[in-house]
Design a binder for these strands. Structure first.
Lengths: 343, 343
DNA sequence: AATTGATTCCAAAGCGCTTTGGATGGTTTA
DNA sequence: TAAACCATCCAAAGCGCTTTGGAATCAATT
């Protein structure tokens, strides 16, 4: 069923039917009802493509998901983020189109999205230090918002980010207050901007407490379970092992936990662990009492908000850029305790 | 830059330029080169929507991701599956459009996709027992393939599935051969078809070994870490606890492992665990020696293959349905060992 | 020289919508 | 009563492509 057929069935012009359906005022309320009813009955829905062609809008948002070429890894937060954003799009009649792409072809994909006029805007995932995508998108004139921030970029842009710096500052503080003086960090790849900020918060807190910064207990890597395991094991094998470790993701924290277990150590007693918790739906941090003490910020919520931000930007292209900094909450669980006394 | 402008710049008609770009034979090789060069230089790419309107194709595939209303959970395999499928689409010039939707609105979404002519086909995720989506899509005439199978449906359809039955049969066998007679099962929700098949394989193997089936050591639930933990704990608290547990996902297996740890039990010695491993990128099963003995089948691979299957189906609408049953491999890790002797 | 046949190109229609710029008829106002 | 004004509808153009059905040119064949 298309507009033409529907309007013929109704004995009306396409113009009137189109206007009736789109809520324009110049159509009698009675006819509008009649049209709506018929459309419903026949299951008529305007063709997205025809509508897009006519209006010049795509009514679609692009999400370009980078896959790290090295590990072929999809960030596990991605599903929940998309779920949040998808809610917003659905409510506003937008479609979400996804491109999975490795770092090498990313620029091509953005250019393609723009020149094919496939989307009205894009969400930038996983911003890097000095991320080249931001000036690129800005130059292309493709509206975008960033999930996170990119240090070292002077192009203005809209973003929504967790305050990673303050979160890791507080986490480190918390451990210091418990008497820990030897605190390890299992971080994400430092090409990622968030990892940088987390480290900055961590280092700042250590300095505040006059604790020296020791690269031998600071690991970086793709945030997998194995990375959490291996890094923690390595640190605990040192002559002067940490009594506490801060980990950048729940998945890695599970690995850290496994490392403790392998070594016969008890989490929260022998070694304290704090993790960042993105509140993934399949990784609830325990039931009543949290397993891990964690800095906590829902990535699904971020998806919802960021999508709203982008739609707003598209509707109001001349407004100033918007920024939103979410504070993570520090929830105390069973993975932390006072620093064990020296033996 | 659009076709009209490009062809004016070249002093050619739109027809010729279009044909040159789309590889039709009735254009001189020299002009084709000239056109290709100019298109490249100006960064011209045909508008997806205009092209779609003209050809009647959408050049897009829909993925409708169900979110369980109860737990608001996104299946963690989803990211990797999409990554696999996305590869195939990119190679074939298709776009992937994603709808996140709760069970209640699913039918609406499929109908919308069809009537708005937004996609050329869809992938059905997470098929249920007697899944209503299959007859629905069949009736709508929207090409589709199913990731998994749906018992109790007589409509024919194309699918790709892991042989869940044989995988869990073998896993159970394997434990029996190690002397276990008390084997628990931590399964997914039994509305899901795969969970049903896994249970069938498990029960069959038990029967083969003359072991009674005991519902008190068979748990079902959303496959979260907490579910694995709680179910395992509950089973181990029984008077006659299992000496081995088969778990339906790595995430839940991590929970099971935590339960053992909490109880001071050693995995592989006191209690054996076998899990199903979807080979998620962030959840590698250990480095050299696998952490878990596991039935293993890459979901990313499944995504790639299923996407190919769908594109083939779209290109050859009158061919018979295709079916592909992948056998999971059983990889032996450190989580299994001989049944402990009765004390 | 006339015909045929390739080869290479083009004008225009059509895909399914929105939107511009009226047309129509009935009501109100001067 | 004529003019002005609403309220309601419509015909047709246009969005950017593909594709149909030629047209034009030139070489080869009769």
């Amino acid at each position: 069923m298309n507009l033409k057929q529907l309007s013929e069935n109704l004995g009306l012009s396409q113009t009137t039917v189109s206007r009736a359906l789109n809520g324009y005022p110049e159509v009698n309320e009675a006819t509008r009802k009649r049209v709506a009813l018929a459309a419903d009955e026949y299951g008529y829905r305007p063709s997205t493509r025809a509508k897009g062609l006519a209006t010049g809008q795509a009514l679609a948002i692009g999400h370009v998901i980078p896959i790290s070429t090295k590990h072929e890894m999809v960030n596990p937060i991605f599903g929940d983020f998309i779920a949040g954003a998808g809610e917003t799009y659905a409510r506003n009649g937008y479609e979400m189109i996804l491109s999975i792409v490795d770092d090498a072809n990313e620029e091509q994909v953005y250019r393609g999205l723009k020149s094919r006029r496939a989307v009205d805007g894009v969400v930038v995932h996983g911003p890097l230090m000095n991320d080249a995508r931001i000036p690129l998108l800005s130059e292309l004139g493709l509206p975008f918002v960033v999930h996170g921030r990119a240090s070292g970029i002077d192009t203005p842009y809209s973003w929504l980010d967790v305050n990673n710096r303050s979160a890791f500052h507080r986490a480190t503080d918390f451990l210091c207050d418990l008497g820990h003086r030897r605190i390890g960090l299992v971080n994400g790849l430092e090409t990622m901007d968030f990892a940088h900020r987390r480290r900055a918060g961590y280092e700042q807190a250590l300095s505040d407490h006059n604790i020296p910064i020791d690269p031998s207990i600071m690991a970086v890597g793709e945030m997998t379970e194995v990375h959490g395991y291996q890094s923690t094991r390595d640190m605990l094998a040192l002559d002067n092992p940490p009594t506490a470790v801060i980990v950048s993701s729940m998945i890695s924290a599970l690995g850290a936990r496994r490392a403790l277990e392998d070594l016969g150590l008890t989490m929260g007693r022998d070694v304290s662990i704090i993790t960042h918790d993105d509140v993934l739906s399949y990784l609830e941090n325990g039931l009543d009492v949290p397993i891990f003490t964690a800095t906590r910020s829902s990535v699904r919520d971020a998806g919802r908000k960021l999508a709203e931000m982008l739609l707003h930007r598209i509707a109001n292209p001349f407004e100033d850029d918007k920024h939103e900094l979410l504070e993570a909450e520090l929830t105390v669980g069973r993975s932390t305790g006072p620093a064990p006394r020296k033996v």
